[in-house]
Amino acid sequence: MPAGDHMSPETGGKGQSSPFLTLVRGAIALLDWSGRLIVGVCLTAMFAALLVNVILRYAAGSGISWAYEIHAILLPWLVAGGLVIASAKGRNIAVSLLSDMLSGRARLVLNIFIQAAILIITASVLWSSHPILKASQFQTLSTLGIKQIWGYSSIAYSFGAMSLIAFLGILRTLAGEDVADLALEDTSLS
């Protein structure tokens, strides 16, 4: 069988996926898994700290003092991980009316415009958060003694990853892949 005759679900059954697109999809999947890992670790650590604190309060009459501050570090990372997962899966909030009305090249142009807008917005958030990140280097949590930069750095992770995902979405669209074909009616959680 000649190359390209194998059906590929990534290309709508039109043949093999190019190695470039496979690499791009792999990078997006890696970002998705990084978000999953961050969410899992944060949820587990926050729940464990809260559980141990409650048990100690009831059993010993006093809990662990840092159990309340750990959330100041982990909650922003939990949200950041969720943002990256949603962005990588295309599950962030979207209005798909115009995208659903268009097809072919017009839909691909709209996809490029949307991904470019996301890229510009996320890059501007990264740029504008620079003073906040700088200032947070001098703020310390009183009980833990940890600098606030550890929580605020989640901004750089989440918006950096979303910028990269948008850029990779542009590359996928330029390669002819319809990144807006999400079948929202089948995957909606509402």
Rank of each mutant, 00 (worst) to 15 (best):
G61W: 05
S99E: 08
G61N: 08
E185V: 07
I114W: 04
S190K: 11
L37I: 10
Q139L: 15
G61Q: 07
M46G: 06
E185Y: 11
A166W: 04
M162A: 03
L182T: 07
H6L: 15
S87L: 05
V125A: 05
I114Q: 04
L174E: 01
I120T: 13
T11R: 12
L23T: 11
A72D: 15
L119T: 09
L98H: 06
S18E: 10
G13H: 07
P131W: 00
Y58V: 11
I85K: 01
L74N: 05
L51P: 01
L133N: 09
S129M: 04
I149P: 11
R57C: 09
L144A: 03
W77F: 10
Y58N: 13
I118V: 15
L141R: 06
E177A: 03
L78D: 09
V84C: 05
A117V: 07
G81K: 08
F113V: 08
V125W: 03
L126R: 09
A117F: 09
R36A: 14
R25V: 04
S163P: 03
N53Q: 01
M101F: 06
L51Q: 02
Y152H: 12
A3H: 15
S65R: 14
S136N: 08
V109W: 12
A94Q: 10
H71R: 15
S129F: 02
G169F: 00
W33G: 05
A117S: 03
L164I: 12
G81F: 10
V24A: 05
E10S: 14
V109L: 08
D186I: 14
A59M: 12
H6M: 14
Q148L: 13
G145I: 11
G104V: 00
T122C: 15
S188I: 08
G82E: 11
G90Y: 03
T173P: 00
L174C: 12
A27F: 00
W66D: 02
V79S: 13
A183Y: 12
R57P: 03
L23I: 09
A67R: 01
A59P: 10
Y58F: 15
A106F: 06
V84D: 09
K147D: 12
L184H: 09
D178K: 01
L21V: 12
G145L: 05
I155H: 09
K14F: 06
A156D: 06
S142Q: 15
S129I: 08
F138W: 00
N111M: 03
R107P: 00
R57H: 10
W150M: 02
D100N: 11
E177C: 06
V109F: 12
L31R: 02
A116G: 02
G145C: 10
D186V: 07
T143Q: 14
S129E: 08
W77L: 13
S188V: 11
G82V: 02
G13Q: 07
A80W: 07
P2H: 13
L144H: 00
S34C: 02
Q115D: 01
L164P: 09
F167Q: 04
Q139T: 08
I155M: 00
S188P: 02
G90W: 05
A117L: 09
L78N: 10
A67L: 12
S190Q: 06
Q148C: 14
V84T: 15
